[in-house]
Design a protein around this nucleic acid. Structure first.
Lengths: 328, 328
DNA sequence: TTGTAAGCGTTATCAT
DNA sequence: ATGATAACGCTTACAA
């Protein structure tokens, strides 16, 4: 840690003998500057190791080249993979990203939004699927564009990037029905909450398995593990699970109890994170282009931030399935 | 997205009929203000919904209340858990965190540092264990304080928060020796690279198992899986692994090949992330207070940022062990 | 092509 | 206890 004061644009202009405006022009590559003076300025910049002060720039131009990224949980691999896509595209467009962990908690989300407003970020990517009505309203009224990534806006007003959850869960249901199970033996395990993601999943599931049961589970491993006993006792023979951690919990319960997977119990999960690939037996899953969801969302946001009009602001990316060893 | 211009401190002062200075005083709670006028100002602030512009504030005060967090990989649960601790303490002290994903890549790290310098963050937390000498130098010369979290500075100049890796790996070695293995049957699997974290681990391991072998493996699952075959062919019967993903890879290889764990092969991992708890058999591991490492690092940073002198800037937190089902 | 100067929204130093 | 006013470092009309 050293304390030499950074040189300013003024130092550069003085050294070269031109005005501030000229230096600004070459730094930002706009306006006409004679090639010769440009060279001189560039040289001075290098010599002084001048770097524009982002705050001053922001104040003057009201652009910060920062975006906010609200994320429910840093250790949720689904969101982490989305974030990788977001980060990659942000890098390309030179945006830096301010992280706001929300814990899916309405108060924390509001606080995060307020901070981002105060910091004058140019836009934000929102991830989360338990969005309160109040939050939704705040997001709509935000002073900068907001894009939902891997998260659905129940009112459909905000731009978003997702897969077709209804279709995915319907297909998953069909797959399970093939193995000669009674519909009452097939269940959907999903997280509770008002989030409409979960309602889309349910809708898709019931399209295919109208007589299927629906169980609620929190998003964590232990919740799945605990629920598994009830599942088994209720005579369920196959489940589609909305999140990978509870899917793993269910799998491990079955294994710990000596129940054979997939012979006696089948599982399809839906996020296809590292977790399900590393499980033994490896868990079958819907596959989502997670990196791309994040990347496309960020790309969309850059367009919005530059004031471009968007033709279709609800983008739906294709999903697939990988059947591994928890299905017959 | 709405576009009403935010009210400024000027609007507030005008409405109340006081000067800018007075408003600034009540907003920042410093300087003397008559209780009566303070109330009036507060009222106007509420009515106008005034919020200080962080950029202007930053420009004027040269404090941004932002910190940078450089992180090698968003999907590495070890760093994600450190980040949780960092984030939690940052929230308490009202810092917002700018995320910089480094991919353990020297160029990306340099770029990240430069961005953070341009943005004038007040400090930064650095995570990463393949830090180049050049980067180290840049970090030392940075205009703001830097704290290493779960990452060691080979030159020991920068503040850091860690566990005692030498001791931990030495103890792990002792534990494995107890089960009547020849030293040549015990190995350390660690990632390559100049990072000194890995050299501390090796040092600890060799303290306990002087005749032990050392294998190099990348940090990912597949690398561990691939290495496992060699391990087995070489007659290794027990390993200590530097990262959880390769540990899981090794475990799964053994399982896929019908090699009994822990009877024929024992594994101790070292980060104790979700991954190893969810594995079957659950993997024995060193346990690190990951959240606390992040939290303490951030707390240390706040002290540094406020100019406090630090008595001991190399903090070492206690580690333990959880012996689960991959050790006898 | 280049320069001048008025902001941008705060903080902070002096006065009063 | 409060007010003027000069920074902070840059962008951006408007002039020249």
């Amino acid at each position: 840690m050293t304390d030499n004061k950074q040189p300013t644009i003024y130092d550069v202009s003085e050294r070269v003998g031109v005005s501030l405006a000229t230096v600004s022009r070459v730094v930002n590559n706009n306006g006409k500057v004679k090639s010769e003076t440009r060279q001189k300025v560039l040289k001075a910049i290098k010599e002084l190791n001048y770097r524009p002060n982002a705050m001053a720039k922001g104040l003057a131009s009201s652009k910060t080249t920062m975006i906010g990224m609200v994320m429910p949980d840093l250790t949720d691999l689904y969101y982490a993979e989305l974030a990788q896509g977001i980060d990659a595209v942000a890098k390309i467009y030179k945006y830096s990203v301010t992280l706001a962990v929300s814990d899916e908690n309405p108060e924390a989300e509001k606080a995060a939004l307020n901070t981002l407003i105060d910091k004058h970020v140019d836009g934000m990517i929102y991830m989360g699927n338990k969005t309160s009505g109040e939050m939704l309203k705040l997001l709509e009224d935000s002073p900068f564009p907001v894009v939902f990534a891997g998260s659905v806006d129940p009112q459909g007003k905000l731009p978003s990037v997702n897969i077709n959850y209804v279709k995915a869960f319907s297909q998953a249901g069909e797959m399970l029905k093939k193995s000669d199970l009674d519909e009452s033996e097939v269940a959907l395990v999903d997280n509770p909450g008002e989030g409409s993601l979960s309602s889309l999943r349910q809708q898709g599931f019931l399209n295919a398995v109208s007589g299927g049961k629906i169980y609620e589970s929190d998003d964590d491993y232990q919740a799945g593990y605990n629920l598994a006993q009830h599942l088994y006792e209720d005579g369920i023979k196959a489940v589609i699970v909305g999140e990978d951690e509870p899917a793993l919990g269910i799998l491990n319960y079955m294994q710990d109890k000596g129940i054979k997977v997939p012979d006696q119990f089948q599982i399809i999960s839906s996020n296809d994170t590292k977790l399900v690939k590393m499980a033994r037996p490896a868990i079958s899953s819907v596959t989502q282009p997670k990196f791309d969801i994040g990347a496309v969302a960020m790309r969309l946001l850059t367009k919005l931030m530059s004031g471009q009009e968007i033709d279709d602001s609800k983008v739906v990316l294709p999903h697939e399935f990988v059947m591994r060893d928890t299905t017959k």
